[in-house]
């Protein structure tokens, strides 16, 4: 039997290693996002859709649905839509909690058929890049070699355009994309209830651990549930990045990565 994911246990409080970080002004959390609201920052939730009128979401700045075409391509359908499951709503609400004034966009890429899944996923990221999005929350991944190249290419493009792709690591062993790429923020769940707490894994590709185990999250129908998964840790990091960018506009992905390392619970220096 193959082993657990390489990062499994990396964020256990008893095992995590201390890392040297940049000497940012103390206290680093205050410097990073003290008083920040996410104002002026656009965040896309690439997922199952978002319930705009959910009390914990508090409205959307926009919504599109990426749907497969009969010819194998994709089309963009603008306008509010339902959340097919509740997961996208959960992510949007977490981002809203951490960056209350951010402009949140729902980019629904999950639909009614698994065929064309990779194409809609890629088209969702493309929409975000073409529409001035600053932070993209992707609680999704692909193991497909077919999509390695296209996803790598668009992740590099995002990196060079200062668009932060925040991606969930996968519990299934083996590489998944784009969370495997150095150009993205790869996130796994770790114990703890502080939504602002981050840990840095010195043994990437999974770099950041955030709140994602037994967390109370918004769900479809205006409700809420308790959930666990890397996909719930990911919007915590996306929300914190949105708050950071609203206070320190123009940071590049490598600068943001350094700040997140500096605010990590296991950082010293």
């Amino acid at each position: 039997m193959s082993g657990l994911p390489a990062w499994a246990g990396a964020f256990d409080p008893d095992r995590i290693e201390t890392v040297a970080a940049l000497p940012l002004p103390l206290p680093v959390r205050d410097w990073a996002w003290g008083g920040a609201t996410g104002h002026g920052v656009k965040v896309a939730v690439v997922d199952s859709g978002v319930e705009a009128d959910h009390p914990r979401v508090g409205g959307l700045a926009g919504a599109v649905s990426i749907e497969p075409n009969a010819d194998g391509g994709t089309k963009v359908v603008e306008g509010l839509h339902e959340d097919l499951v509740g997961h996208g709503t959960a992510c949007a609400a977490i981002i809203r909690m951490l960056a209350p004034d951010a402009k949140i966009y729902s980019v629904r890429v999950l639909g009614s058929n698994l065929k064309g899944r990779g194409a809609t996923f890629l088209a969702g990221i493309r929409w975000a890049l073409d529409n001035g999005i600053h932070v993209v929350n992707m609680s999704l991944s692909s193991k497909s070699d077919q999509w390695f190249g296209p996803l790598h290419e668009i992740a590099d493009e995002a990196y060079f355009r200062n668009v932060m792709l925040v991606c969930a690591a996968n519990n299934v062993p083996g590489p998944t994309y784009p969370s495997q790429f150095a150009s993205v923020f790869s996130v796994a769940a770790r114990p703890g209830s502080d939504p602002h707490a981050i840990a840095y894994n010195p043994r990437p590709p999974v770099e950041y651990g955030a709140c994602g185990i037994d967390v109370d999250v918004a769900w479809q129908g205006g409700g809420s549930i308790v959930a666990t998964g890397n996909s719930f840790a990911t919007p915590h990091v996306a929300g914190l990045i949105a708050a950071l960018l609203s206070k320190h506009a123009g940071l590049t992905p490598f600068q943001v990565k350094a700040v997140l390392q500096a605010v990590a619970d296991n950082a010293e220096g």
Partner: peptide, 29 residues
């Protein structure tokens, strides 16, 4: 059941594992 609905559907569509508690609060999926 359709892949576009429910927790199992989301897992299949997203390719990600999740754990969800209190599912009885939302019987639809």
């Amino acid at each position: 059941m359709p892949v576009g609905r429910g927790i199992a559907g989301w897992v299949a569509m997203a390719g990600q594992g999740i754990a969800v508690g209190d599912v009885s609060r939302d019987p639809r999926p």
